[in-house]
Design a protein around this nucleic acid. Structure first.
Lengths: 334, 334
DNA sequence: TAACGATAAGATAACGTTGTCATACGCGAG
DNA sequence: CTCGCGTATGACAACGTTATCTTATCGTTA
């Protein structure tokens, strides 16, 4: 038994090949009568159109690319889930391409991918979003692009994002509302634009509360666990240690927790710890993390949605974040 | 500027289309002279063959499928990384398909994917590996299949796996060597064959050490964090609580840790905790987990390798696991 | 020296769809 | 009643490769 082709379907349905094609592509000008006959034949033969033939003959490939250079399994998993779901709804396929933003071959790889697969669109996640040469290559090929949380050329492509400034502000304000005045902050990796935004939100909330900014309380991190432990070790041995540490990723917050445990600092009694992202991690460490929920899956879904609905037309969509309070934060000891 | 085609290359190189095709496909019977001319032209035009045209004309699509229904981002991420790397080396593409093993449409979805994309091969990860109907569908289509850690029909397809029995035995033996005699065990989800194997390894090590098996010390889990906390709460309130708990996944071990923290049981001083998998989690909780390192990325790489190297020919490859000792285990208090 | 196999290259027909163009019908307006 | 337009269908070329078949040249062997 070999695969059924459109020809088989047309023979069984008693119509022309082109009519079958019309039904399959939901084109206008097809009578209900024809449509029904074709649909029956398709079901009976268990026919599935050849992706390859469609791509070759038509101008669409029904495929979009998702490119990432992000070390977080959690982030990638959820992003893929969101993009994947929207793709399935539209009968599109998602081509995932991990990459290395420092590789000199990056641009060529992207070009090759688009050429070979004839992609209909492209989704970029940070930090690839801000690689100028990659972006230029996509423009050169006039392919619709949606970026997730871009940091540069904000109006150049469609984009989905959350308000990182506001989110970090929310968290900082929450810690202040608990009574904290000395709040440490661990920044993210310099490659990510969001890192700077979160720092801005932190400073913004401090200022509004009339708390002076103290550069000694800000520790440069890389979004990873190690950064968190290093930051905690540095911040907790200050002459005037903070009563709370806001790490701008959950991994770093977990690092802070581990260091606190090791140093015998009780969380949240002696130290409040806050994270950012609300990854799986947040509920698996002890105590569970107060954090900002970032709707990664929804961001993926929205990105694919913009691509499929609007194509070249530039659209922007901001998604809501949410402050999630768990066990790692409490009022400071008086 | 439109895409370069093989025709353009042949014109620039001054050879026939077929010769270009031969060079591209590394066929025999091409002179070095021709090969060089073609390669130059390819580079000059930045030519990339159309995936669609190749698939349509040839009998190969240069694509393999990876199907999974696994809730662990860590597992999926590393599996994809391994498969993806091997694919890149062979200029293949990986099509990822999440699925739901309880969905009635599962078999149809798999069939549709293979038909549409004309996949050259298929990789299944647990627990999809053991869905009989899905397996049957793949056989019907005579497509090469590699399964990762299959539990049923072991000789029906190629497979890659670790020795779960031995791994659990190693961990249990290690705990016994520390001096533990009452060792709790948290099993995995019933859908996964590995769950039973790990329990077997646990029992095997106990028996060898002359320690009687106590069913009260075995708690049924689901591989997730919740199971771990539930298990710890149950086991630690026994009349004779265990001095060590071996949870057969890191998530469950993290749950045990959290419950121990909450109950004021010090780890590892009052209770040793061991996990399984060596996910990112293991180094991010406190104390860091003694666990079995499972080479997930390597399993993915090996799976793709078997597919690409052996095709239909059935091959099996066992990869080594490793006991990783960290801070969550210690001798029992005397 | 004739015959043959191994090597090297090309001409042309697929592959299974969609795009383009042609055709035919029914219906309302002039 | 005729023209034009919206609707509905089909014939056929085109998409960019690989497969198959054919041809040409060489070196080796009988």
């Amino acid at each position: 038994m070999t695969r059924a082709t459109i020809k088989d379907v047309s023979r069984v349905a008693g119509v022309s090949i082109k009519t079958v094609s019309r039904v399959l592509n939901k084109e206008r000008y097809v009578s209900d009568d024809m449509r029904q006959k074709v649909e029956e034949a398709v079901a009976r033969l268990n026919y599935h159109p050849s992706q390859a033939a469609r791509t070759l003959a038509g101008r669409r490939s029904f495929q979009i690319g998702l490119i990432h250079d992000n070390p977080s399994p959690y982030y990638i998993f959820n992003m893929q889930a969101g993009v994947g779901q929207r793709c399935r709804e539209a009968d599109f396929r998602m081509i995932v391409q991990p990459c290395d933003i420092n590789s000199p071959g990056l641009v060529d790889d992207i070009g090759a991918l688009i050429d070979q697969a004839q992609l209909d669109g492209f989704i970029m996640t940070p930090p690839v979003t801000d690689v100028g040469t990659a972006l230029a290559e996509l423009f050169r090929r006039k392919i619709p692009v949606v970026r997730v949380q871009p940091g540069t050329d904000l109006t150049a492509t469609s984009a989905v994002y959350i308000d990182n400034v506001q989110a970090a502000d929310d968290m900082t304000a929450y810690l202040i509302s608990l009574g904290h005045r000395r709040i440490g902050f661990v920044t993210g990796h310099g490659n990510y634009f969001a890192s700077g935004q979160r720092l801005t939100g932190y400073r913004q909330a401090l200022q509004r509360a009339g708390i002076g900014f103290d550069a000694a309380l800000v520790f440069p991190g890389q979004f990873d666990f190690q950064s968190g432990t290093a930051a905690a070790e540095a911040l907790l041995t200050l002459d005037q240690p903070p009563t709370a540490i806001f790490a701008s990723s959950d991994d770093m917050a977990a690092g802070v927790l581990a260091a606190a445990h090791r140093l015998g600092v009780a969380v949240p009694d002696q130290l409040s710890v806050a994270g950012f992202d609300d990854t799986d991690l947040a509920q698996v460490v002890w105590p569970s993390l107060t954090t900002i929920h970032q709707p990664i899956r929804d961001l993926g879904y929205a990105a694919a949605d913009l691509l499929l609905e609007f194509g070249e037309t530039i659209e922007r969509r901001q998604l809501p974040h949410k402050l999630v309070v768990r066990g790692s934060t409490a009022p400071p000891r008086t």
